[in-house]
Design a protein around this nucleic acid. Structure first.
Length: 285
DNA sequence: CACTTGACCTGTCCGC
DNA sequence: TGCGGACAGGTCAAGT
């Protein structure tokens, strides 16, 4: 999503903002008027699951889409993609019932950025760019798993922070490693043949090293595939991600394990729906 | 303290 | 067909 927005938004100027749900965008109209209206986008960044849209006012929109949030860019009157272009039909006319905020933009042509969020869990917030790193959520975030300097050694060290938890709960903990959600936890644990409910400190170093490799492979593969659309996720132009067509266990309960043919089952671990091959992922606790 | 569970929301799906 | 309940890709506060 960041990659898509980074192609569209820079050099666009905010012409207006329409917000229909205060919890989605709690900033006061005064702040919006002073620091967002008239500001020009300079960059789109990501840290963990958080998106940041920077402006030349030295303010940024910090955005968390949670589970059902979307950020969709549309040129006005559908001019950008043209009638009949597939991007125009993937999600219907916007705004729709899930639209919470609309940023009206001036770029090479007038455009809008729609923040849609069916479950209203997501949020966006305007704040000084320099302050982003000091909000609690960002301070606690663990390292980026795909960063060049994120090594096996640092992975093992980070895991030490929660020795007694189920390994899946540790992977989902954003303060241990940033950005891993339910899909990628299940997929990487299957790839490494580790049971998600295994206590962290009962897993061998060899297995954890394998997990490191598989987790990075799964994340990279998903980025290459444009993400994972279960039902709500779309990228900046409204396209769904195709990673789930490559998923081995996620949402595949009742189907055969691609490695051994055993039936995949769905269980509950760390309060989350969890998918495993019961033959290859044996509990170690 | 370390860790787990429920709340926040709306829409969908499944079983009766 | 209608209805209740479980559940959903996340995170925080409150609980054990």
């Amino acid at each position: 999503m960041r990659r898509g927005l980074a192609e569209y938004l820079p050099k666009h100027t905010v012409r207006g903002v329409v917000s229909s749900y205060d919890k989605s965008f709690p900033n006061s109209p005064t702040d919006v008027e002073r620091f967002l209206i008239g500001a020009q986008c300079t960059a789109v960044r990501r840290r963990g699951k958080v998106l940041m849209i920077d402006f030349d006012s030295l303010y940024s929109l910090v955005i968390h889409l949670k589970m059902t949030g979307q950020l969709v860019y549309r040129a006005e009157a559908g001019a950008r993609f043209g009638a009949g272009h597939p991007n125009n039909s993937l999600i219907g006319e916007l705004p729709d019932a899930s639209t919470r905020v609309v940023l009206e933009l001036n770029g090479s042509q007038p455009a809008k950025l729609f923040f849609n969020d069916q479950r209203r869990f997501g949020w966006m917030r305007l704040m000084p760019t320099i302050q982003i790193d000091s909000i609690d959520f960002m301070k606690k975030l663990g390292p980026e798993p795909l960063a060049a300097d994120f090594t096996v050694a640092s992975f093992l060290e980070r895991l030490e922070r929660r020795p007694k938890s189920a390994i899946k709960a540790v992977l989902l903990d954003q303060s241990v490693i940033a950005g891993v959600g339910n899909i990628y936890a299940d997929e990487s644990l299957w790839a490494a043949k580790i049971h998600p409910a295994s206590r962290n400190d009962s897993i061998t170093t060899t297995q954890k090293k394998r997990l490191f490799t598989e987790l990075r492979a799964v994340l990279q593969m998903s980025i290459d595939q444009g993400g994972s659309s279960d039902r709500n996720y779309v990228d900046a132009s409204g396209r769904r991600g195709s990673y789930l067509t490559f998923a081995n266990v996620f949402r595949r309960q009742g189907l055969a394990c691609p490695r051994c043919g055993q039936e995949i089952v769905k269980i509950r671990v760390a309060g989350r729906g969890t998918h495993i091959c019961p033959r290859e992922q044996r509990i170690a606790s």
